[in-house]
């Protein structure tokens, strides 16, 4: 086992463990903080794969923006700082069964896919970001998704503002 593999296993374990903590923590704020750790773990895995751009994007968007958004959302919630009810309900074994089933299905599909054992080949060349940027605005490649992404972001923005602001100024 190389040092890289040991680091990967450690980071993966931390990521999964904090993901479990996200759903089992009693305080919502703690759940959000475990989520941050989990997301950071994913960022480190990106770095291990030499995908620098995605590492910073993961930190910038997921930790710097989405986690903050979630924390703000928690602070909006009324009287939800402390959860007192039981963590499990009667159907928990059904849920567990379903989860195991989905995992097994995914594992079977992935193992039968030839790409699962293939290594990525030589490390990504330094100009990968340049290629990415060129393809984004290339009419033969991703220019449509690029512009559609912009429209979708706009739709998200308008929707969110409509929901959160509209009814307050009802007289307008």
């Amino acid at each position: 086992m190389t040092a890289l593999q040991i680091i990967f296993l450690f980071v993966a374990a931390v990521t999964l463990a904090s993901a479990v903590m996200v759903v089992s923590a009693r305080r919502m704020m703690h759940a959000a903080l475990w989520l941050v750790l989990s997301l950071a773990g994913v960022a480190v895995i990106f770095a291990l794969l030499d995908a620098g751009f995605f590492t910073v994007v993961q930190v910038l968007v997921y930790i710097g923006a989405i986690a903050i958004l979630i924390i703000f959302a928690i602070m909006l919630t009324r009287k939800a700082m402390e959860d007192v009810g039981p963590q499990l309900n009667r159907g928990w074994w059904l849920a567990a069964l379903a989860a195991v089933g989905v995992f097994a299905g995914l594992a079977v599909v992935l193992v039968s896919w030839p790409g699962v054992n293939a290594s990525a080949g030589a490390g990504p060349d330094a100009n990968l970001i340049v290629t990415f940027g060129k393809d984004l605005v290339d009419p033969h490649k991703f220019v449509m998704p690029f512009e559609v992404a912009s429209v979708m972001l706009l739709a998200a923005l308008i929707g969110a503002i409509y929901v959160s602001v509209e009814h307050k100024g009802g007289q307008k």
Partner: peptide
């Protein structure tokens, strides 16, 4: 000389934001 240096500078600032939220809360 990280090839995403500029974004790294902004991204790492998220740690500081987190520090402030944690402290306040």
């Amino acid at each position: 000389n990280l090839n995403v240096g500029v974004l790294y500078v902004v991204a790492i600032g998220a740690l500081g934001e987190l520090g402030i939220i944690l402290a306040g809360w």
